[in-house]
């Protein structure tokens, strides 16, 4: 679909659903990888994996949102 053929309603709808789902993507990324890191910490009796998991989750979520909506 070229830029000219797009109807403005479609764009608005796309944009609204993107903006509303971004916070849940970020939360989900943090929950999955942070939770995994927390479980690893409990298992191995360390304390480093939880922060690493949180940061990894945020990075992956930002990457996902960028690839999905950023172009």
């Amino acid at each position: 679909m070229s830029e000219q053929e797009r109807r403005p309603e479609d764009d608005g709808q796309d944009f609204a659903s993107a903006a509303w789902s971004i916070p849940s993507y970020l939360l989900a990324g943090m929950a999955i990888y942070g939770g995994g890191g927390w479980l690893l910490d409990r298992w191995l009796d360390t304390s480093a994996f939880f922060p690493i998991g949180i940061v990894l989750g945020i990075v992956l979520s930002v990457y996902l949102v960028y690839r999905k909506y950023g172009r």
Binding site: F15, I22, L26, L27, I58, S61, V62, Y69, G70
Partner: peptide
């Protein structure tokens, strides 16, 4: 959207 993601990430951090 890109700017929003980066800002929102800080809030969730």
């Amino acid at each position: 959207l890109l700017g929003f993601v980066l800002t929102e990430a800080l809030a969730l951090l």
